[in-house]
Amino acid sequence: MSILENAELENELRKIASYIVTLRREIAVLQANEMHMKKIPAAGQELAAVVNSTEGATNEIMAIAENVLSADASDPAAYKEFVDKEMMALFETCAFQDLTGQRISRVVKTLEHIEARVSRFATYTGVEDDPEYASEQEAVEIARRRELLLHGPSIADDGNTQPMIDKLLATFRNP
């Protein structure tokens, strides 16, 4: 090997070593373990709590409505007293919104934290996305959602309103 080739090889190795050092630093900054062990599970717990509390509150509100609808109204004074009491319970139940709002704020902060770390990692390492990559399980789920048109609730103007759907259905009746 010539001196020139040796120098080139040494230069390449220096670049690789430098890249490895950068990569190690960026992996550390990514805090993948903290994300995996703490932040993502905590966000999952927050969302589960939101689902539970909204479900619980909805059931309580419906129970109040059912009680009022089925109450005996033959004695107006007693009926009013009963309805007033149920309405107070309804106001109390609506307090769940404050707690769910706080929980969702924490989840949003976690997502912002992850986004910032992953974005920095991608920038510093120069890694490009592989748009075709999906795990076997993800690929099955993606295919199912595509085949069965499973999009979930729309955001903002992404979907149709009821009047738009009615108009669309009418085009089938009167082509």
Binding site: L149, H151, P153, T161, I165, L169
Partner: peptide, 25 residues
């Protein structure tokens, strides 16, 4: 359903749905 995209409404109609209500209603 909460599925409110045009392709869902069209697919349901073609499959024979009698009416379509979008949540919340």
């Amino acid at each position: 359903t909460a599925e409110s995209k045009t392709e869902n409404v069209v697919a349901a109609k073609k499959a024979g749905v009698n009416n379509y209500i979008v949540k919340p209603f």
